Simulated assay, not measured.
Amino acid sequence: MQHSSVEPVRWVVMGVCGCGKSEVGRELAAALGVRFLEGDAYHSTANVAKMAAGIALTDADRADWLQRLQEEIASARAAGVGLVLACSALKRRYRDLLRAGDPGLRFAHLSGPRELIAERMQARTAHYMPLSLLDSQLRDLEPLDETEAGVLLDISNSPAVLADQIRRHQDR
């Protein structure tokens, strides 16, 4: 096995519900040979029930969830391993909390037109997030700014193309 002096990168694939975070994240993790974490799996049962009922989460609702995700990121950093996390990371302060676990954390923001995202959400069969919450997520979304390490990507591309674009950006 060859050892590299290059620090493994940890990525958050972010964006609103229905933009393809999980699919792109799994594809990216497989390509990089690193662990994939589904951020939704870290929500409390109360948060899942709230979202399933069409009630948007508040910052207070998200606090413990973001803390658990930050701990996973920090653990990967401490172990010196790469990681891909699918997480909405809608607000800058949420991303700052995640970054507290790894200052080198990078974000891949999946973005596209509301109509396409709504179409994808309506096609999903096994997800608790109703289409009614899309507009609240779009309202809360604070896109990456120039001070944040990351890349903005167009979801009209396939998950394989998006994962490849993220990998190419990683090498810059």
Rank of each mutant, 00 (worst) to 15 (best):
residue 130 P to V: 05
residue 37 L to W: 14
residue 166 I to D: 01
residue 71 E to F: 01
residue 134 L to Y: 13
residue 119 E to Y: 00
residue 145 D to I: 00
residue 162 L to H: 14
residue 145 D to A: 02
residue 118 A to K: 02
residue 2 Q to V: 15
residue 155 I to W: 05
residue 121 M to C: 09
residue 81 V to F: 05
residue 116 L to W: 03
residue 101 G to Q: 04
residue 143 P to T: 05
residue 33 G to H: 05
residue 158 S to C: 02
residue 119 E to I: 11
residue 44 S to K: 06
residue 147 T to E: 12
residue 82 G to Q: 04
residue 125 T to R: 15
residue 142 E to N: 04
residue 140 D to M: 00
residue 147 T to I: 04
residue 97 L to C: 14
residue 148 E to D: 07
residue 36 F to T: 12
residue 8 P to E: 01
residue 60 A to G: 03
residue 132 S to C: 10
residue 169 H to A: 15
residue 78 A to F: 09
residue 86 A to E: 13
residue 14 M to Q: 11
residue 154 D to T: 03
residue 69 L to F: 06
residue 151 V to Y: 02
residue 55 I to F: 09
residue 81 V to W: 02
residue 30 A to V: 03
residue 108 A to E: 05
residue 151 V to G: 03
residue 6 V to T: 11
residue 99 R to W: 03
residue 79 A to F: 14
residue 8 P to I: 07
residue 157 N to P: 07
residue 97 L to P: 00
residue 136 S to P: 00
residue 121 M to H: 12
residue 50 K to H: 09
residue 10 R to A: 13
residue 14 M to S: 03
residue 83 L to G: 05
residue 16 V to S: 04
residue 58 T to F: 01
residue 103 P to W: 01
residue 145 D to C: 04
residue 2 Q to S: 15
residue 171 D to R: 14
residue 117 I to A: 13
residue 67 Q to G: 08
residue 77 R to W: 04
residue 87 C to Y: 15
residue 154 D to I: 05
residue 59 D to R: 04
residue 79 A to Y: 10
residue 38 E to L: 00
residue 75 S to D: 15
residue 160 A to K: 12
residue 20 G to N: 07
residue 158 S to D: 03
residue 46 A to I: 02
residue 86 A to R: 01
residue 122 Q to R: 03
residue 59 D to I: 11
residue 97 L to G: 13
residue 29 A to H: 06
residue 49 A to V: 08
residue 69 L to G: 15
residue 48 V to S: 06
residue 161 V to H: 07
residue 115 E to L: 03
residue 116 L to S: 06
residue 67 Q to P: 09
